[in-house]
């Protein structure tokens, strides 16, 4: 049995932080009916993912547990829970809000760093160079040119380059 979470491990401001984050506004509406968990296709094959538990850990203030456990990254974003939630909590958007908080607090998964690097480098997740374009031409498809500059500029404007470029935070 894991140790119970007690007061000095809890951060009561976490629920406020989430409800002020885009997508997390409706977290306090949850009345714990478990419709999300019972609808969840990830949960159906993997017991370690339980959206209701994440919501209630967050409401309790178990910030460290929520952010460090990595559970929020398992959500497949299928939106089934969001469609069914009787309190319209928007659970999928809530998971995204917690992900955005986790990233800002230094817990960005390696896969997302790699994706940001690709977007910066190619403007897309996959390179399209001569090799790819040759194959496209053979199929009668038009050439596609990489337009990375403006995508890299967007990442700069939004302040996301600090997650993958080795530079001090702005």
């Amino acid at each position: 049995m894991p140790e119970p979470l007690i007061d000095d491990q809890l951060d009561p401001s976490f629920r406020v932080q989430i409800s002020q984050e885009k997508g997390g506004e409706k977290i306090t509406r949850c009345f714990a009916c478990a419709t999300c968990t019972l609808s969840c296709p990830v949960r159906a094959v993997d017991d370690s993912f339980n959206p209701r538990r994440i919501i209630h850990l967050a409401l309790l203030g178990a910030k460290q547990e929520v952010l460090e456990s990595g559970f929020v990254w398992l959500c497949s974003s299928c939106y089934l829970c969001s469609e069914r939630c009787p309190q319209d909590v928007s659970v999928t958007e809530l998971m995204c809000a917690i992900r955005n908080i986790a990233v800002r607090e230094g817990r960005i998964p390696a896969a997302y760093i790699a994706q940001l690097e690709l977007l910066d480098k190619h403007g897309r997740l996959y390179e399209i160079g001569d090799f790819e374009n040759k194959k496209r031409t053979k199929m009668g498809l038009p050439r596609v040119e990489e337009k990375r500059e403006e995508v890299a500029r967007i990442l700069e404007l939004v302040g996301a380059t600090r997650y993958y470029r080795k530079e001090p935070a702005p």
């Binding site: 995204c96 995508v151 996301a160």
Partner: peptide, 26 residues
């Protein structure tokens, strides 16, 4: 075909939801 199209922005939503909003709007 519009050659200046890029990624829609979806992969970066988990990092910061402002990224896909700006990429998609562009």
């Amino acid at each position: 075909d519009i050659n200046d199209f890029s990624c829609c922005g979806f992969p970066a939503k988990a990092v910061d939801r402002m990224i896909p909003l700006v990429m998609a709007a562009r």
